[in-house]
Design a protein around this nucleic acid. Structure first.
Lengths: 129, 129
DNA sequence: ATGTCTGCAAATCATTTGCATCGTG
DNA sequence: CACGATGCAAATGATTTGCAGACAT
């Protein structure tokens, strides 16, 4: 039987209220504003549990450590855009669909896919270097 | 002044002759067939050098550690497939192209993209769990 | 009360680095 | 011969785990 503790509640709140995916350290920092004693071990353990309960999902970008976002608020199939200047990650709705044009070798079974777009976000377009 | 050592030559040969991107441990194992004393530290140091010289390129997949492939043999634009059973990564030629259907927010500038397919490779299709 | 959850510190695991020695140029 | 490269082992940095005490039910 899963217990409703202050730290679990706070961690879930931080993730739910964020408009962008957060990493463990970001969650720790935000959570410590309410619970100063909060430890990184609790963050990792709680993230594992929340993932298992499907209350949050992992956002994994190529070559970057994982971030987490509320599954309820992001349940639909979507992809991500990472700004190459500010590194922020944004949701992109829609999907190329069939991914026709990809030459999958014979005998391979495609189950799902991941698309990441890179470029400049609206805030960074037109900003110097 | 860069020296042509047995280990550097062997590491580059292993990567060049592989039909799929390899991780550091895979390169170590393959390289030890020719040089049993080969150490993992040398692998990492040599990979760093080869990347700087643009003889190889990094293949970064979401949520997984990096693989490396020959830049000369893989200079063209392509994507990757990762087997969800054996974790191996394979090149996929072709590209969905315009990525139409992706609803990029107004003001965003897309520069490049990354597509990863997941599923079972030919060897793992039909193999029990 | 009872068994889960937390914080701390120690343990992993992958990658990096210091250093004495090896070997290429 | 000189200096970059190698192998070993210790150092790092991120994540995981053991354990005794704290707390939800």
């Amino acid at each position: 039987m899963k217990r409703v503790t202050r730290q679990r509640t706070e961690i879930l709140r931080v993730i739910d209220e964020s408009e962008r995916p957060l990493g463990p350290q970001e969650i720790l920092q935000a959570g410590r504003e309410a619970i100063p004693s909060l430890s990184i071990a609790t963050i990792y353990r709680t993230l594992r549990d929340l993932l298992a309960e499907e209350l949050i999902k992992t956002v994994a970008l190529p070559g970057d450590s994982p971030r987490y976002e509320s599954l309820h608020a992001h349940a639909h199939h979507h992809h991500h855009f990472q700004c190459t200047r500010c590194q922020k990650v944004f949701d992109i709705h829609g999907c190329p669909g069939s991914l026709q044009g990809m030459e999958v070798p014979p005998g391979f079974q495609v189950d799902h896919h991941e698309v990441t777009l890179y470029g400049l976000c609206a805030d960074c377009v037109g900003v110097g270097s």
